[in-house]
Simulated scan of single mutants.
Amino acid sequence: MHGGQGAVHGGQKERSAVERVAATVGTLSVTGVTGVTGRAVVVVDDVVATGVTMAEAVRAVRAAGGRVVRCVAVASVDD
Rank of each mutant, 00 (worst) to 15 (best):
H2M: 04
H2W: 13
H2E: 13
H2D: 07
H2R: 14
G3M: 11
G4S: 12
Q5E: 15
Q5W: 06
A7G: 14
V8T: 07
V8L: 12
H9P: 00
G10R: 14
G11S: 09
G11Q: 09
K13N: 09
E14Y: 00
S16W: 10
V18N: 05
R20C: 11
R20Q: 09
V21N: 06
V21I: 08
A22I: 04
A23I: 06
T24R: 02
T27P: 03
T27K: 15
T27M: 01
T27V: 13
L28G: 01
S29E: 14
S29H: 10
V30L: 10
T31G: 02
G32S: 10
G32C: 07
G32Y: 10
V33Q: 05
V33I: 15
T34R: 13
T34D: 15
T34I: 04
T34L: 10
G35K: 02
G35V: 10
G35M: 04
V36A: 08
V36H: 07
V36K: 04
T37W: 00
R39K: 15
R39M: 07
V41Y: 05
V41H: 07
V41L: 10
V41T: 08
V42E: 09
V43M: 04
V44D: 03
V44K: 05
V44Q: 03
V47I: 15
V47D: 02
V47K: 03
V48P: 01
V48G: 00
A49M: 06
T50A: 07
V52N: 05
V52E: 11
A55M: 07
A57R: 01
A57C: 15
V58R: 11
V58I: 13
V58K: 01
V58F: 01
R59S: 14
R59N: 13
R59I: 01
R59Y: 05
V61S: 06
V61C: 07
V61F: 03
R62Q: 11
A64Q: 03
A64C: 08
A64I: 07
A64W: 04
G65K: 08
G65V: 06
G65F: 11
G66P: 05
R67S: 11
R67V: 14
V68Y: 06
V68F: 09
V69D: 09
V69M: 05
V69L: 05
R70K: 14
C71D: 03
C71H: 00
C71A: 14
C71N: 04
A73S: 15
A73T: 11
A73G: 11
V74E: 00
S76F: 04
S76V: 06
V77P: 00
D79W: 10
